[in-house]
Design a protein around this nucleic acid. Structure first.
Length: 119
RNA sequence: CAGAGUAAUCGGAUAAUCGCGCAGAAAUGUGAGGAAAGUCCGUGCAUUCAAGGACAGGUCGCCGGAGAAACUCCGGACGGUGUGAAUCGGUGGAUAGUGCCACAGAAAUGUAUACUGCCGAUGGAUUUAAAUCACAGGCGAUGGUGCAACGGUGAGUUAAGAGCUUCACCAGUGAUAACGAGAGUUAUCAGCUAGGUAAACCCCGAUCGAAUGCAAGAUUAAAUUGAAGGUUACAAAGGCUGUCCGCCCACUUCUAAAAAAUCGCUAGAGUUUGUGAGUAAUCACAUUCCCAGACAGAUGAUUAUCUAAAACAGAACACGGCUUACGGGUUGCUCUGCAUU
RNA sequence: GCCUUUGUGGCGCAGGGGUAGCGCACUCCCUUGGUAAGGGAGAGGCCACGAGUUCAAAUCUCGUCAAAGGCA
């Protein structure tokens, strides 16, 4: 779990991020990016979503969200967040394919995604 | 020893590093389940409408007990299944009435017999009589049916036959007696015996305010105002929580944002242990403990060891049940088979 | 979290106790120089799954699973 200042919390913030309509996809993990930042001092806010349609069981959905969250936390700690700092908000969305991946594979996928979102 | 039945129980552990929710000034403390699941029953709690009547309607259905209640639990009765331990059962009424019973069949509910048949004892006709006729009449045995044919099987009786009540063995029903708290069981007697379906409508008995569900609902401050207000005589249309009586809406003034925070929110039909009552469910008393409370939503990640990268699976107001999912074990009691003593 | 509805040929739908049907699509034949349209014939169903009631269940009852929708 991330501490509160890195979390995307408000419903309006989520809808605002989705309205930018810019997303990237790799191996069952999608990233929606929000507006570009003016002040780089502010922390980037992250949301994690796994829909109920992806899988019925809450345990498996929670597992995927936790894995993604944990990876992002480790990125923050090691200063490997890539281009995430350019945006105000990011939303990671887990899909059906990602349920089968293990911790290290998701780590790779997310690192590649964070490099991709520059352009 | 093998195979079963049943009741319970555990629901990964330890260490290291990095992290999260809640409480707290801090130190620190604490942090998912036996099913948290399905949402199938029942409650508490909250709001709205009624607190009235009528008509509808729902639910339940062997007996006794427990329980706040329940499509709940415990003990028993009866019936089904099993060699057995056991286990399963929505188990009132078909003589209150109505409906349905395809195809087949003579006939499917009406104290049936038109048809196919059996008989012709008795009466009648022919006739001396025997015999013949199948006329009156008697009979319900026979009928390639069907889930089901009006108690069943076998004998006796008879002209032919028949529960005929004559007999044997059964099935049901009623009465009486005994036992039992009761469902019921057993015995004796009575010829009393007119299908099935009520998980078809229904009848009987018992019982139920209705609806909506914490996204219920309550509070707070600000903006131009109030999380709206006022009016209502009739008619039409529409709506409302079953329908009617009834109520809302209409007409007018006015306008915000599918916004935010706080409360509801967890001390309870509670947990642990013990004693007593009871066959048991459960209850009483004492003792002990405080044990998640989020709001894009907390328990995670990595590594190592343990036989082994454990199954089903994640609280969202709470509780009592039911149902379903589940890796690998452990324990008690019981049954059957085989072997030995 | 709560509430509601629906599961029947490949697709869309009927049937509400007594032999499972309709339209489109599919296969073959006819028609045409050929295709479409048209005509004729045919195949394809454990009626979502598991129990129960009944002589008999797609239909009645109970449970399970799946899909869809609604509530701020």
């Amino acid at each position: 779990m991330l501490s509160k200042k890195y979390r995307l919390k408000k419903r309006s913030a989520f809808t605002a991020t989705y309205r930018v309509k810019k997303s990237f996809y790799l191996e069952g993990v999608a990233v929606f990016v929000g507006f570009r930042k003016e002040n780089t001092e502010e922390p980037t806010k992250i949301g994690f979503v796994v829909s109920k349609k992806t899988h019925k069981r809450a345990v498996k959905r929670n597992r995927l969200k936790r894995l993604m969250r944990e990876n992002y936390r480790l990125f923050l700690k090691n200063n490997e967040t890539g281009n995430a700092n350019l945006y105000k908000s990011l939303i990671f969305v887990g899909h059906e394919r990602a349920l089968k991946l293990n911790f290290n594979r998701i780590k790779e996928v997310m690192r590649l995604l964070l490099e991709k979102i520059d352009d």
